[in-house]
């Protein structure tokens, strides 16, 4: 306060002048940024268009051609669609299993990594930066890289995709989990420590009950993402519904009904899983909301 009043009061003109100067500069920066952004977008669009096989303007009319063909053929053979869906259902289950197992394994390793990388919980505080880097690298590797390399070694199938997604999930969840851990109270850990509990016991009994709901909520969100990832990896040879889609598409015209059945299965399962996990997450965060309110008043 003393600082503010010690300044000589400026005249209204002076204040207005500095204010208009400030807004002008802000507007200039904003304008420059906007122009730069628009230029980048335009140049990027042109470059991408030049390097594409078909140009944007030619292809634009044809966007709906393929879906229309597929739909038309699916409409003709509508009676066969349920049969196809039953036929491809095991592939869908495989895709869901890849995502589920990868999420579980990734969450387990993510939990370990996050506990090892949080100050106050880590058993070896000096190694915290190392575990952080490990998480960063796991997060940075796109699933397809590991999947393709593992397919070469292990042969095609669901396991390479599962490992690839699990590695990425461990990194991604590890980062989110360690943010959750930072907000957890360390008092239970200290209490357990005073009773002579081991590190695993301290974490399992002192930390996990606090952060569990948040962990589950993040893991569910990851599961949604991982279903999409596992479908895509199937397309490059890792089995599941993506692989069936690739095959059905390579048959070309005449077999579009199979592709349509797979599209419908994939779409429906994504929507259903999104809805269920959205509802579950909502419940978890509602539970959390009361607990944080308690925490805030305490």
């Amino acid at each position: 306060m003393a600082d503010l009043t010690s300044h000589a009061p400026k005249s209204a003109d002076e204040i207005r002048e500095t204010y208009t100067e400030l807004t002008r500069r802000k507007r200039l920066y904003g304008g420059v940024l906007l122009v730069l952004f628009v230029a980048l977008m335009a140049a990027g669009f042109r470059t991408a268009d030049d390097r594409n096989a078909g140009s944007f303007y030619d292809g634009f009319h044809r966007i709906l051609d393929y879906p229309a063909e597929v739909l038309a053929e699916a409409g003709e053979k509508a009676a066969q669609l349920p049969g196809h869906m039953v036929h491809f259902f095991p592939a869908l289950i495989e895709t869901l299993n890849i995502a589920g197992a990868a999420t579980l394994i990734g969450a387990i390793f993510g939990t370990l990594l996050s506990l090892l990388a949080t100050r106050g919980m880590a058993p070896w505080p000096r190694l915290i930066p190392l575990f952080r880097r490990i998480m960063d690298i796991c997060r940075a590797i796109p699933e397809i890289v590991i999947a393709l390399v593992l397919i070469f070694v292990l042969g095609g199938g669901p396991v390479p995709a599962m490992i690839a997604i699990a590695i990425h999930t461990a990194g991604a969840l590890g980062k989110l989990f360690s943010e959750v851990n930072e907000n957890a109270s360390l008092k239970p850990v200290e209490g357990l420590n005073s009773t002579g509990a081991s590190w695993a016991q301290r974490m399992w009994l002192g930390v996990i009950p606090q952060v569990g709901p948040n962990y589950v909520s993040y893991a569910l969100l990851r599961f949604e993402i991982n279903i999409r990832a596992s479908a895509i990896l199937g397309f490059v040879g890792a089995g599941g519904i993506g692989y069936e889609l690739k095959n059905a598409m390579s048959w070309g015209q005449g077999r579009y009904d199979e592709a349509a059945a797979i599209f419908i299965l994939l779409f429906a399962s994504i929507v259903v899983v999104d809805q269920i996990s959205g509802a579950m997450r909502d419940r978890l965060t509602h539970g959390k909301r009361t607990s944080t309110r308690k925490g805030a008043t305490a």
Partner: peptide
């Protein structure tokens, strides 16, 4: 919004690749 999200980038990629051919624009 729900529909576009649910269709998933794999299906969009497949559909768009038919219209625009391979390349960064697709």
């Amino acid at each position: 919004f729900d529909f576009v999200r649910g269709v998933d980038s794999l299906i969009w990629t497949v559909v768009l690749a038919r219209a625009f051919g391979p390349g960064p624009m697709t």
